[in-house]
Write a protein that binds this DNA or RNA. Sequence first.
DNA 1: AACCATCTTGGGCACTCGCCCAAGGCGAGC
DNA 2: GCTCGCCTTGGGCGAGTGCCCAAGATGGTT
Lengths: 189, 189
Amino acid sequence: MSPTAAERGREVRRKLLDAAVELIVERGWAAVSTRVLAERAGVAPGLVHYHFDSVQALLTEAATGQMREAAALIGPALAAARTPAEALGLLMASLDSYTGTDPMSLLFVETYLAAARDPQLRQVVAGLLLEFRAQLAAWLAEHDVPDPDTTATVLGAAIDGLVMHRAMDPTVTGDVITPVLARVFRDAT
Amino acid sequence: MSPTAAERGREVRRKLLDAAVELIVERGWAAVSTRVLAERAGVAPGLVHYHFDSVQALLTEAATGQMREAAALIGPALAAARTPAEALGLLMASLDSYTGTDPMSLLFVETYLAAARDPQLRQVVAGLLLEFRAQLAAWLAEHDVPDPDTTATVLGAAIDGLVMHRAMDPTVTGDVITPVLARVFRDAT
DNA sequence: AACCATCTTGGGCACTCGCCCAAGGCGAGC
DNA sequence: GCTCGCCTTGGGCGAGTGCCCAAGATGGTT
């Protein structure tokens, strides 16, 4: 019944990844250290560099993993929407769950920023961003929204921008901005 | 002709603030240290804590000063626009000057992030954000754009989001997104 | 039982960190 | 000339950093 060494090893890896996500959010990407990671994961400090090449590599894997999970939720959620108004409602509801200072918001902005300085991370994040846009664009195209690709780009950026601004101004809720954002769905010309 | 001690002191302060802006951009907010600041400013390390209470205070003053300057350029620039299309053109032109990895973009995102963890900084940044929005909203109201306040909010957030996304995907230029963004200017109903 | 791969431990190395402070200019005002 | 106030110097303190590594534990394979 007792797990094998390899299984325990994988468990430690997972605990370190979880701890990394927590700590990026709490302290900021650059302030996550070997020893704090180990302590949070309940593990000896030496294990960090046994399971990962570097702290940077651990943070990268943790952050991209979390973003991948979040991105995977978008497609199925969108599939439930029948009209553009419904889709916007879904996006706004998810926006309202991000206050700009909650874990997921901070993780995203921290990772965007880290990606601006790390080409390898940037490539991964760019891929996730394109994937998110593609899912949104596909839905828009199926529901006859004009310029689906560009519209998806603008919507995605607006959402990330709004999340960032909400940290400064919490009055920016989905309810308030829905009427304006709805305009981008309407026919061009 | 030789400057007084007080004048030289003010000059050192200024050099430290300039160095701080450069280093926040190059290394990231949390990675700017006393000694690197002093070296970049061409000044002895001890002067950092003579002229400022802490490194954090120096970074805060440097970043908010730079943002204040940038925000002050918006009003006059907007005044030159006669139609919503022209105003959007101006905003898009300024967007194109920010690649997402240029100094100003990184400084803004770094500061937003630092503000999420520092209530004092957050208050200052929030004030600047509201000021920017108010200027944009005032212009929109004068030119009969519906929901000027909310529209300004969405536009401002979209621009910041687009800047952040451009670091990952440089193909997002003003030209491409102008047609979609133009929709938010049109009459509601 | 012996061996082996794998994981784990905890301390060590060389370095940097923020902040402090005694000591030393140095020009302005008396 | 002398004192006063401001600015400046450079070293030092305790703590924290990433990464390394010799040594030990554990459990499956031969």
